[in-house]
Design a protein around this nucleic acid. Sequence first.
DNA 1: CAGTATTTTTTCGAGGCTCGAAAAAATAGA
DNA 2: TCTATTTTTTCGAGCCTCGAAAAAATACTG
Lengths: 413, 413
Amino acid sequence: MSVGIRHDDLRRRNRAMVISAVRRAGQPSRTEIAATTGLSHSTISAISSDLIGEGILSESKAGEAVSLKRGRPQVGLALNPEAAAVLTVVLSLNFLSVAVIDYAGQVIAEEQRRLDTLTMPRDELIGECTAIVRRRLEDPDLDVQSIARIALAIQGITDSHARAMLWSPITPQTNIAFADILEAEFGIPATMENDCNMMAVALRWRDPNRYRDDFIAILLSHGIGMGLVLKGELFTGTHSSGGEFGHMIHRPGGALCRCGRRGCVEAYAGNYAIWRNARQMGEDAEPVADVSDADMRALAVRAREADGPEREAYRKAGEALGFGLGSLFALIDPAPVAMVGVSAGAFDLIEPALREAIAQTAGGQHSGSISFDTEPNELPLIREGCAMRALSFVDQEIFAPGIQAKPGKKDVA
Amino acid sequence: MSVGIRHDDLRRRNRAMVISAVRRAGQPSRTEIAATTGLSHSTISAISSDLIGEGILSESKAGEAVSLKRGRPQVGLALNPEAAAVLTVVLSLNFLSVAVIDYAGQVIAEEQRRLDTLTMPRDELIGECTAIVRRRLEDPDLDVQSIARIALAIQGITDSHARAMLWSPITPQTNIAFADILEAEFGIPATMENDCNMMAVALRWRDPNRYRDDFIAILLSHGIGMGLVLKGELFTGTHSSGGEFGHMIHRPGGALCRCGRRGCVEAYAGNYAIWRNARQMGEDAEPVADVSDADMRALAVRAREADGPEREAYRKAGEALGFGLGSLFALIDPAPVAMVGVSAGAFDLIEPALREAIAQTAGGQHSGSISFDTEPNELPLIREGCAMRALSFVDQEIFAPGIQAKPGKKDVA
DNA sequence: CAGTATTTTTTCGAGGCTCGAAAAAATAGA
DNA sequence: TCTATTTTTTCGAGCCTCGAAAAAATACTG
């Protein structure tokens, strides 16, 4: 069951804590770290001295921060960019993108590629991914010792161990153990992440004030996805990446969903559903494979111009999202929401019906106080999330090795 | 943010771990504890020697376990029943029940009382609760030094800090800070728990094989409640006890719910809803205040005898529960379910429609493999859960004091 | 410009904790 | 009674964190 704390875990944990304090705060002084971690100055001094000696941290040179106070000036600690590097791979519909990130989080190389994911056979899809990674790894211009970690994000369902893609809308292939494949190919630890979870991770780094312990990132794209952070931790299902918000049931037996079932939220709010309703094709019409972002933007323009089927389509999307969020709020209580993706650009069309629907649900008491942010472009977010995730792995597992995942697992009681 | 690990936390954590190992395992030997916690024999020896010296543990006398092996026989460690005692209070519709539990988990005194919670004014409701607790505390027959903790469970919504009842179906009163009231009155630390959460806690202690890391306890009673354990921890909302499964939306704009909204799962599956449908009163009919368990059982008998409105009412309940569970499973993946409460006794009438509905949802792939247990009597479960919760508090906060709630809060990344 | 005040960082010894190895204790079999 | 075996305790070694004091580095002051 639960496992005791060994004596050497102590140092390792506190090492990890110092590293993470530096990553979060930018250039904190030893004193600041002592304050935020609650550890003594002596401990912080010892640990940071170790970390500097190992080339993980470095003292930020020069008094760029002109100290106005008396006394010995604080010397900031920074992550040493050369301590390590990680690689991110984002696989989305017809698009593959990789980036190499240094230890301090800066992009030092990238490559992008269009490909036809929907029709590509399994081997070719895997081959494209490994090939693009190989090109980055073998690039002579890149003077990076070695890549410490690869994080790969994909639209769709991944398993809860972050090893495999189970199902994805961007390809008919299923069960591809990308993490294992990349590890076997390059001998670099890799993980397979869900795109919406990475969005949530990135939001938390971008705006820790708004997105702290509990929040929701919803991807409004061809499909509907969700990344959920609860009590400061990414929420995943018990077996899969979970959080399949788009496939909560909005209307039992209702509109035909891309997943083959009926009445899912996505079957009203996904791009294909908005498109279908705007064109008055009927709820049983087979979902189209793809609607371009340009077409969706044009649709939104028409919806804003005049009341008609386009506007009604967005209204229905808002209603489905509202009732879905209402059900979600019944379970987790209301929390800040970020709407991401092309249809987040049409949130003005969605919001009224959404709020009206939420008001009819258990979360409705606070309907007015729930705030929505919008971010029409999901790709940068996903990339950032992957980078932070990979870097955090390096922080914790490579530079503070040996920590058990969960220390003393608390009993339920 | 996150807080470092101090040196003395180490001992405290490991103390708590030993206590919890003993509580879980019954009468484990030092060697067994060393094996399950991963700590060394020397450490376990030192800690258990301390704990015995403090009267928290005791060596279980006499070789009741006739050792068949060679070698020095193991000596089992047990919780010392007299180390402490806790008090549980369960407040449900028209019924108040308290029990005093010794440190080993045995009930050593109890008292129950009928009262009219629905019409009782606020002060009187609070007064009844404090009075019954006072009677138990002042009972001269009870030779318990002192009560170390009170856990009070109520049907309804509590706040996430376990201090107050926010709303309850058993009384028109709202926002009663029972935990604070009891603490002020008796000077004993108290918590206010949600009844369904306590059911989940109890199930985990009763059958740790089936109910381990991820499971769902659903209360099928006048209302519909849920206790949810995910990744080994009780799941609560961000502000409230959360998990308001009964108020997820089944059919937007549908049947009238007791909460005043429309289309909630409860508005189809709560006793009042089954009753309303069985009597063909229409979905807009005002929910009745209470249906007796006897009436519900009679209803189930009629539903089994012949196809008619009674059977149809249970079918609709099953459908609502099935779609609700389907949406829940979309978020958390399928997990074992325990159906608790009087209508769990009619689960044979509910199950077919429930499974049919689940099969139409995202959780549906595994529809067949999802297993349901039934337990018609919720009260003993709630009481047990309260007892275990209070005892665990004593284990962790009194006998291993000073532990920070969450050690190194892991970053999302 | 030297001296003082102030703040940050390092150093050093004390105290605690866990660990491994060895010793002690307690039993079954020979 | 002696030996093998298993459990439990004892003891010294090695770390780790902490507090206090020292050292370092700067701004102020007259």
